[in-house]
Every structure is written in structure tokens, then in C-alpha cells.
Amino acid sequence: MNSNDSTECTLPLNPVVPFLRTERMPHIWCPGCGIGTTVNCFARAVMDCGIPLDELAIVSGIGCTGRVAGYLKLDSFHTTHGRAIPFATGLKLSNPKLHVVVYSGDGDLAGIGGNHFIHAARRNLDLTVILVNNFTYAMTGGQATPTAPKESIETTAPYGVFEEPFNLPHLAASSGAVYVARWTAYHVVQTKKAILEALQKKGFSFVEILAPCPTIYLRRNRLGGAVEELKYYKEHCVIQNGADTKDVGIDLRHQDKVTIGKFLDIEKKEYYDAYQEHYAGLLKGGKQAVAGA
């Protein structure tokens, strides 16, 4: 059975379609790229969450995952490399009713944007940060990111990576995030649930999603295609909810298991509320610290 999205009968639409700028399809992502899979999870999470789409804004940086903003039919901002979080900071604080989602890649958020990442977590800004980790700068052809596994081949590490990779959940948790989870593009149901929880969580919530990059990372490292990578996740990932984040570092293909799960889910005062509370005594006549827009 085949269909178009604008099928005239009463069959239900693909759940992701109301979120897509369908006029921009097909997207630029390669066959088997895991980013589209994460978008499916995101769309279904938003639907279950019940946030009105008009109150949902998405901010991306640069790179393959940075293109997510351009494909989603939301108020969407494709910003500069690494700066999605500070842009989202201004957006959220100027218009607190918005649910602001930062959707970007490992190179963007943890590399060039690493400083903003830790400071937004420290402030516990009410942002949902979705980081698609494909272990490479794919848009520019496969350079080493701060998450590149040791000994993996990248164009800027032609003899193999020797630097230590980031443990992103630990970075987020130790910087002050209130929700931290890691899933993979294989674990779609759990990924969807994690995004849903992150959207509902007030404060800095962080979901890392490991995703295959068949054209660049997997091919260059002779690791097969998307199917092989997803099978690898299936076989090697161990779900350990509540695991201590300091123990969840990834050394892909040198360790027997990759720890995934919901690592952290705590309550802590969110930045905007803290700001309001802090200045409450100063404000005349119950005026809000920020008029809002």
C-alpha cells in the first residue's frame, strides 16, 4: 500500500508529518542516518506531551543535526556553530511561556559549544537539550569530535583518535542538569519516552542519543551500515537506569557494554523561577522581573 501525506481518505497521517516542512522533503540526511529516527521520537514525544505546537520553539546549531530546526514546522532557529544554547537562553528568558528545545550534534554542543552547555546546565535553565551523538563532524566530512572513540579513524585523525572522549551525561549531571538520559537510535521507544520526560521536566534536561552515521563515521571505520550499527547498539547496550554518570563513559568497541538509560531525574529550582523569587522583594506592585513579550 502506498500513500502520499495528503491522502484524501480518512487514514491517519504519519505522526511526524504535522511537524515537518513537507515541502522541504526529501531532507539532506544520508540513507540510514540516525537523525531522522530521533526526529520521529521527538515528534511522537511532543504529541504525547500535549504542548501546543505554537508554543514550542526549536533551536539548532550547525552541522547535520543542526539541520533539524529547518525541517520542523515550528518556530525554528538555525543559529551559528555551537551557539544554539545561548540563543535559546535569550529566547526562553524573553518569552518564558515558550518550550524551548535545543536540538544539535555532538560537535556543535560538546565541541565548539561546550562552554555554553555547562553554563546553561549550571544555571539550570529550562531547556530541553537533545544531542544526537554520531561521533563525528559529519557535515564537514568526518573530523574528530570530542566524543570520537579512541582509535577511531577520522579525517583529522587519520592514524586514529588518541584523545579521551567526553562522557556527556557526566558533564551534564556534574554541571547541574536535572534530567540526564542516554539512549540510541535503536531504542526508539525509550528515546521517545526520554524526550517526553525531558520536555515535561522543568530545568536543564539532557538527552544524548547515539546514532549511526553510515556515510562518514561507519564507512570510514569499516563498521558496516546503519543496520549493523543499530544491531551493535542492540547487542552491546546495557540499560542501567540511575547509573552513576561517572561510570557511563563510552569507549565504543573497546568495552563490552555501553551503558544507557535514565541516569538522573532530580528536582531543583529552575533559573527563571529562581530569578523571579530572588528579585520579588524589589519589584513594584507584583510586576514580573521580565515583562515577557
Binding site: 502506498n2 502520499n4 487514514l11 504519519n14 526529501p26 544520508c30 540513507p31 529516527t37 543496520v227
Partner: peptide, 19 residues
């Protein structure tokens, strides 16, 4: 169950078939 396929959007990754 009903499956709907938009052939022209497919890039042939086979993930759906596999999983």
C-alpha cells in the same frame, strides 16, 4: 495493522525491514 509507505521519500536503508 496497516503500513503506509511513501516510496519517493525512501532512501533504501533497510532499517524498517530489518527491525
Amino acid at each position: 495493522g496497516v503500513v503506509m509507505i511513501t516510496q519517493e521519500r525512501c532512501k533504501g536503508c533497510t532499517v524498517c525491514v530489518e527491525f
